[in-house]
């Protein structure tokens, strides 16, 4: 087994609704999707975003897109026009999630890191 960052396994896009940020996480390959489902849990994402996400994290599965959608509540200093943050809309939270490491087989790690 090897630990690799999600950026080698998935891409992502994030956006906002009020003070809630959403992050969509999309597997590069169908084979990677079960790894995301198993390891990128709401609890891990909440822990990953500590100091940024001050509320709950919800996770939704979108198997037809080989994707997960996360809602990070209370994460944008009030959001939209209220927020004082540079990233008041959570646009860069997508790449922030891609910093997370998960465990994969050596073969998958080799393949994913080769790209």
């Amino acid at each position: 087994m090897a630990k690799i960052q999600l950026i080698h396994l998935a891409h992502a896009r994030s956006g906002d609704k009020g003070d809630t940020a959403n992050v969509g996480l999309i597997a590069f390959k169908p084979e990677y999707y079960p790894l995301l489902v198993e390891q990128v849990t709401a609890e891990r994402v909440k822990e990953h975003f500590q100091g940024i996400c001050l509320g709950a994290v919800e996770r939704f599965e979108v198997p037809n897109l080989e994707a997960l959608n996360f809602l990070l509540h209370n994460s944008l200093d009030g959001g939209g026009t209220i927020s004082l943050k540079t990233d008041a809309q959570g646009k860069t939270y997508s790449s922030a999630l891609l910093r997370m490491e998960i465990e994969v087989d050596d073969a998958i790690a080799k393949e994913a890191l080769a790209k």
């Binding site: 969509g24 999309i26 939704f60």
Partner: peptide, 16 residues
Amino acid sequence: LQSIKEQLLYEMGDPK
């Protein structure tokens, strides 16, 4: 597929 999937998930809540 990738550019479309990214946009489908943009500002998404409960996908159902």
